[in-house]
Design a protein around this nucleic acid. Structure first.
Lengths: 185, 185, 185, 185
DNA sequence: AATGAATGAGAATTCATTCAT
DNA sequence: AATGAATGAATTCTCATTCAT
């Protein structure tokens, strides 16, 4: 039964789903292996440890957001509110993608103080997130204000995600995104 | 060898600290017993299981917020912005109390989908939180708007807490609270 | 089924038997637990890890040899060859005790380069061993020679133990001990 | 992609190094493959299992000693002490060759009771070793005594090797060899 | 011949929980 | 009430081995 059943990429994608649903500490390597349709040991062929896998997940998500979400901040052809709309649309799809949830927010809170290795990459993600929003806000607002709006917006969106998760109702998140766009009208 | 060394109350308070710092799944009964200065087995005299303890923690935090935070929404003698100021002051103290962190937010995200027993009490907490803010906002804003502002405010505050935790910088949270008050000026 | 089934001491003694027979790396915690009549997990109540257990074993054997073998070098009432006879008698009993084998020699060779933590205590054992023999030889030989004889004797005895083990014939060891005593006649 | 990268011979030589350094049970097939510059699976082209590889190692070492060490006992042209000198010189080179250590002694002790398949070939090695020394001693000593001296000498040399390894000081081994030669002067 | 993927049986270790004292 | 011992299931990780390409 050998010959390529899974790939690093595939494992990462399955892991994202499970981590999002069950949190980092409550997810077992067996859960992930299961979701990949292989045995536990096989995961270690691709990742030396659960932590290494998680770091790959964080980097993957970060890169994905750079390429698909944050990038809309740079789209030269569009106006500020259109950029934000695109960015928000994309984020919505991702957060409520296959399994829902905001993996870097969740894992960030859960592990920031416990697994120091995760701290920096997670911070990087949010730093980039803020930069993207700041870039857009700068088209309409002066520098300091753009920065504050960016921080505020991320807070609101992340908090809304939390509520959506707790109440099982994505409306909180959708409304937060709507308000985000309205700030540019 | 009897002689009461600890109490339910004491265990709950120690548990809050540890759960906040280490998340629910990464906290062991031994961690909690340690913090209480007793052995693991002793905790089971007061709580039949880790889940039962956690539920007591949730209820305790909820009650504490009712009595010390949300209550400021009802203070008949003060104006809306003063009420909010008091409420926010109190919340700030709690979130950055002994060990910092927002236990119901963290645990909510971490356990909402995994431990159904926690879901309802955590929702209750946030429902009451929203009601308190809504009550205050109603003094200045029409009904629907007050409600939306409450949700928005909680989102922002909770998201800011997340950022504070991830970046190890409480400024995010402080700023969010300031903006909350400004909405009433 | 609680209430003291085993003790640190007991585990150490069982572990000695197994390590002697199966070597360090080929012995599992389950082997040791089995020999103790408890479950794997229970061993961790007494020793945090296999390495820690092994270090306790090394120290225990070292202390035992100090108290029961090397001590004969100091017996003021006896002549050199009598002291050596007593020392050798005792060593013979130990090496061919319950399960036979020379645990510190075996483990020393097996782990000296792999588990640095074991190196020093094992060296200490052999250093004390040499000192004891040297003390006895000094009664009949000048300093430098006594020292060389001590080293030579230990080499011979340890090598003979190895042959005894490989050939399953304790005669090698017995003969080596006999020659040791003859050096003092 | 065929093109022979390694050979049985090469694997055996690499395996000797690793087994000497890390002991049998603590050496993985991956360690050996690594040292050979191939992947784990490739080793199985040449040896069906780790045990089979180890047996080949034992036989290889044995043969090598026959051809390069023990053979000096038969050199008709030399006197006893010269023969011994040559034999000892050769052994010294081998034991302190590339990686040092006395593989058959180490593995003998480690596996004698655990892997019966290794017992006989290891015994054979030491039997031949004894015969070689006995042959030399017979030129100077009567039969029984030559035999005892052979056993004694091997014990001493093997024990000295153990000390050299434990203390990281080859002097023990060198001194033992010197004494061996002196017995023929 | 060599690869690289996958297996599956364990290995060490952790941990919530139980219970006699 | 508190202890400390024991449990046993679960968890991470390892490793010899197999096998299609």
């Amino acid at each position: 039964m050998p010959t390529q059943k899974i790939s690093r990429e595939f494992i990462i994608n399955q892991a994202i789903k499970i981590f999002k649903r069950k949190s980092y500490h409550n997810t077992t390597m067996a859960d992930i292996a299961d979701a990949c349709g292989v045995l536990k040991g096989s995961i270690y062929h691709y990742f030396q440890s659960k932590e290494v896998l998680m770091k790959a997940v964080i980097e993957h998500v970060h890169q994905y957001f750079k390429d698909n979400v944050f990038i809309h901040a740079q789209n030269g052809k569009l106006g500020a509110s259109q950029k934000m709309e695109q960015l928000v649309d994309m984020a919505e799809n991702l957060f409520f993608g296959p399994e829902g949830g905001d993996i870097l927010g969740n894992v960030g809170i859960e592990t920031a103080h416990v697994i120091p290795e995760f701290r920096e990459p997670i911070r990087q993600f949010f730093t980039d997130y803020m930069s993207a929003l700041e870039t857009i806000f700068k088209e309409k607002y002066p520098g300091e204000m753009a920065k504050e709006l960016a921080v505020q917006s991320i807070s609101e969106v992340e908090g809304a995600l939390m509520l959506s998760r707790i109440f099982g109702d994505r409306q909180y998140f959708i409304d937060a995104n709507r308000r985000l766009i309205e700030k540019l009208n």
